[in-house]
Design a protein around this nucleic acid. Structure first.
Length: 220
DNA sequence: CCAGACGTTGTT
DNA sequence: GTCTGG
DNA sequence: CCAGACGTTGTT
DNA sequence: GTCTGG
């Protein structure tokens, strides 16, 4: 599962790495991004890549209550094409959620410890496979998103059974194209290679979602 | 037919 | 919106 | 994901 | 225990 991540970078780096047409919505380095917050995601607009903000926790267009978003921060890779809450978004509204690390908690309730997983190379990003939706609330439109999660790779396995699905650079265009068919998408939903990423235990500081500072990165 | 759910992880 | 349960 | 609240009436 | 908020 993926319930917390970071984006500790400047807008220029993001723009160059993803060839973005805009980065205006990026509000600066984030060490501890939590569900229900506005998160930057990349979508295809008229052949360009745009960075836009979405409420983390997908609210389908038909929801009669935004509360559904509390339990849709992740979508299971195994069923995302079938579940009513995700199916339409999986077919037509995919996005990439850039991250430079994410957190997983190891152990059982009562004695859990946070770990950080990040790219080996400081210049790399993880590109989480995401979905988005638009939900109308009176005159307002809430745009929301979710991160697809699947089985963990060998690096993450000792920490957690699940981890975010990631889209490799060569598949970005396919993933973001609203017209891509399901049969081409399904093969992308596999665990990311363990090569190129590392994990280390961090302090409990990151547990509190109000802590959004460099101490979240400190080894325990 | 209408009513009600639509989700995840982890633990039991 | 669309599916399941009654 | 974790942290923190979880309730009422009436008064400031 | 369960829901809401971040």
């Amino acid at each position: 599962m993926c319930g917390r991540y970071s984006l500790v970078c400047d807008a220029g780096h993001l723009q160059a790495y993803y060839d973005l047409a805009n980065t205006g919505v990026f509000a600066g380095p984030r060490f501890n991004i939590a569900p229900t917050q506005q998160v930057p995601a990349i979508v295809a607009v008229n052949g360009e890549r745009h960075l836009e903000l979405f409420h983390w926790g997908l609210i389908p267009s038909w929801a009669d209550d935004s509360k559904l978003g509390y339990s849709t921060i992740n979508a299971r890779a195994e069923t995302v094409g079938e579940k009513p809450a995700f199916r339409a978004a999986f077919r037509h509204r995919r996005c990439l959620i850039p991250a430079d690390g994410f957190y997983e908690w190891q152990g059982e309730k009562g004695h859990k410890h946070p770990w950080r997983i990040e790219p080996d190379n400081r210049d790399e990003f993880f590109s989480f496979a995401g979905l988005w939706a638009a939900w109308e609330s009176g005159a307002d439109v809430i745009r929301s998103c979710t991160i697809i999660a699947g089985p963990a790779n060998l690096l993450v396995q000792p920490i957690s059974d699940r981890m975010p699905v990631m889209v490799p650079r060569e598949a970005w265009a396919l993933w973001l194209d609203p017209d891509t068919g399901m049969e081409a998408l399904q093969p992308l939903l596999k665990p990311p290679p363990a090569e190129g990423m590392r994990a280390y235990r961090v302090g409990e500081h990151v547990n509190n979602p109000n802590h959004d500072d460099p101490a979240c990165l400190f080894p325990a």
